[in-house]
C-alpha cells in the first residue's frame, strides 16, 4: 500500500517540478501557460490521490469524509483551472500581446 502511495506522490512531484521548470524555460507568455496551467493540474491530481489513499488507510467515517473532501478539491481544480487559464489568455489577447513564433525569432536574429 505505501509503495503505491509513494509512487503516486513521486509522480505528482515530478509533474510539479516540470511545471515550475517549464515556466522558467519557455520563451513567451502564451507558451508559459501550457506548463503552468496544466502540468500543475496533473500534479495536483496525482498528489491528491496519494494523500486520499493515505487518509483512508485506517478506515472509518471521519477519514472517509476527509478523503472525499480531498477528492472534492481535485474536482474543483479540474473545473476551475481551465477557466483561470482562459481568463489569463483572454487578458493577453485583449492587450494585444503577439505570440512568439519561430519565424519572428529568425527575423529578430538577422
Amino acid at each position: 500500500m505505501s509503495v503505491i502511495i509513494i509512487i503516486f506522490l513521486a509522480t505528482g512531484l515530478v509533474f510539479f517540478a516540470g511545471g515550475a521548470i517549464g515556466i522558467i524555460r519557455f520563451p513567451d507568455f502564451y507558451s508559459r501557460l501550457h506548463p503552468a496551467g496544466k502540468l500543475d493540474t496533473a500534479g495536483l491530481f496525482m498528489t491528491m490521490i496519494a494523500l486520499a489513499l493515505y487518509t483512508i488507510y485506517e478506515f472509518n467515517v471521519d477519514n472517509l469524509i476527509t478523503a472525499l473532501k480531498i477528492i472534492l478539491i481535485v474536482v474543483f481544480v479540474f473545473l476551475t483551472s481551465p477557466v483561470a487559464t482562459h481568463a489569463i489568455v483572454d487578458a493577453g489577447v485583449r492587450a494585444g500581446l503577439k505570440p512568439w513564433t519561430k519565424e519572428k525569432e529568425k527575423e529578430d536574429n538577422k
Binding site: 507568455f29 508559459r32 503552468a36 500543475d40 481544480v77 489569463i88
Partner: peptide, 15 residues
C-alpha cells in the same frame, strides 16, 4: 501576466 502565471502556479502548489 507572467507574474500572474507565477502566482497561480505557487497557489496550486500551496494547496
Amino acid at each position: 501576466l507572467d507574474r500572474l502565471i507565477g502566482v497561480n502556479a505557487i497557489g496550486s502548489k500551496t494547496t
